[in-house]
């Protein structure tokens, strides 16, 4: 699909991307002929049933998986090189904070590994904790925080080293609806303030439609893209927007796309 809304240079570009896992039951096509362009500042959601390759695609961008065919560039580099230049921060479904480190200590982890100076570590930790509204919780240990707060801390950790791209793999999947709504709202604010490019895997249709500027609908066996929807919703989105006709129309189209992928089988 041609992108007419953004004129910026592409941040992530996949052409004819294939990934086949060799398993005991024969090869599994996790990704088949995936073409996708993500521009700077996009908020892209990947939605589809499990096994559709949405997480695998995100992991390819992060160089955690390596495609078996096609090309994939991140900031014009290979995913491996992009990682070396700290191109992205990754947020997993579980917060995965180290229980033996404080919240500030956890956020500091990537900074220590990347060799930031002590003073800069402190400064950055303070800034990102403020960004996710966890100022004052730095000295707490993870078990002292709620699940939602832990996930915010893990977002802070991904933001700490100022990557341009934020990759999120079902980050709110394990949280309840109310917490999820709040975190969605906060994530949009954060995105507006930082103008990061975000790749977001979910299997919630409302979440995908509410957050995204671009929705990528995928289907399984083989994992492929069935529809790419550019959202006409404005950048400023109160929660009430979910009752508007535009919102419902996009949600409808996503549902159709998911169903079409299912009928193919």
């Amino acid at each position: 699909m041609k992108d007419t809304f953004h004129t910026d240079r592409p941040v992530i570009e996949a052409r004819g991307l294939n990934l086949t896992f060799q398993t005991g039951d024969g090869p599994v096509h996790a990704l088949k002929d995936v073409d996708l362009t993500i521009n700077k500042g996009d908020f892209v959601s990947f939605i589809g049933p499990s096994g559709c390759g949405k997480t695998t695609f995100l992991r390819c961008i992060a160089a955690l998986e390596h495609p078996t065919g096609g090309t994939l560039t991140v900031n014009g580099l290979t995913p491996d090189d992009a990682r070396k230049r700290r191109a992205y921060g990754y947020v997993f479904q579980a917060a995965g904070l180290y229980p033996w480190r404080t919240i500030a200590g956890n956020v500091k982890l990537p900074l220590e590994i990347m060799g930031f100076s002590k003073a800069e570590q402190e400064e950055r930790v303070r800034k990102v904790l403020e960004l996710v509204e966890l100022s004052g919780f730095g000295a707490k240990f993870p078990w002292q925080l709620s699940g939602g707060m832990q996930q915010r801390a893990s977002i802070a950790r991904a933001l700490a080293f100022d990557a341009d791209i934020l990759l999120m793999d079902e980050p709110f999947g394990a949280l309840d609806e109310i917490v999820r709504d709040r975190l969605n709202e906060e994530l949009l604010k954060l995105w507006a303030r930082t103008s990061k490019t975000i790749g977001f895997v979910t299997h919630s249709i409302p979440e995908a439609v509410y957050l995204s500027t671009k929705i990528v609908v995928m289907s399984p066996r083989p994992g492929r893209i069935t529809d790419i929807i550019d959202s006409p919703l404005p950048k400023d989105r109160p929660l009430e927007i979910r009752d508007s006709p535009e919102f419902i129309e996009i949600a409808h189209r996503v549902r159709e796309g998911l169903r079409a992928g299912h009928l193919d089988e």
């Binding site: 992205y88 990754y90 995965g96 033996w100 982890l109 590994i113």
Partner: peptide, 27 residues
């Protein structure tokens, strides 16, 4: 695996993985 993946997204070296993750986790 998730913990190990997280460190590899930071480009952590093997000694770093050992001292920051494996060792404290084993205490």
């Amino acid at each position: 695996q998730m913990q190990l993946d997280l460190l590899s997204t930071y480009g952590a070296s093997e000694p770093q993985t050992f001292f920051k993750l494996r060792l404290p986790a084993s205490l």
